[in-house]
Amino acid sequence: MEYIELFFKSIFIDNMVFATFLGMCSYLAVSKKVSTAVGLGAAVIFVLAITVPLNWLLDQYILKPGALTWLGDDFASYDLSFLSFIMFIATIATMVQLVEIVVEKFSPSLYNSLGIFLPLIAVNCAILGGSLFMQSREIPTLGLATIYGVGSGIGWFLAILAIAAIREKIRYSNVPAPLRGLGITFIITGLMAIGFMSFGGMLTGGDDATEPKTELTEPTKELSEEDKEDLANHDEIAE
């Protein structure tokens, strides 16, 4: 059950773009066309799904305070967490390089469609951010870490897909000249972030202290059957 909860939490409530602004640079740069946005989003999901569990293993068995006890009891007091940044980014850069080699060998068409994005993902803050948040939120098991990675990736993918679709349409609108391009994208993203805040009451329990207390009551089109059920249940409890 907590798997499903974490999955939906990382897609909608802790959405990488709208709640924590990770990966904004490539989000803004690549979202001019839906086709490129889909390619980048897929790559991000892929890389997050691989690097978050790997970094979890790294954190669990090498970096955490007391993690080195498997080497011997006198290692129990070692705290290597100050090395997290370097180790995480090294894992990410290596994994991205490996993924690039594997994809090029086994699926050249996918490799061609991803193009320059795959190597650029290594420096995307969404990837490092995923691992760092996994570490700071102290996700307890490997399975949950994987779900967190996949969910965060899907959340990012949703965000960039939506903004690319909107940007494609907005080319035909009368945006004031100084706002064209970057400015209106920021404002639209802000409005979408407001929309995503409505998911804040989705999971009962509210263990996130920074969740806003007032819920926006507008229903959004992305609600699935399960979400509607959850919302309905929450309403019952609130009354």
Partner: peptide, 13 residues
């Protein structure tokens, strides 16, 4: 968070 985005949008404007 959303207001940060909108404030930067206004600065760009």
């Amino acid at each position: 968070s959303p207001m940060a985005l909108i404030v930067v949008g206004i600065i760009i404007w």
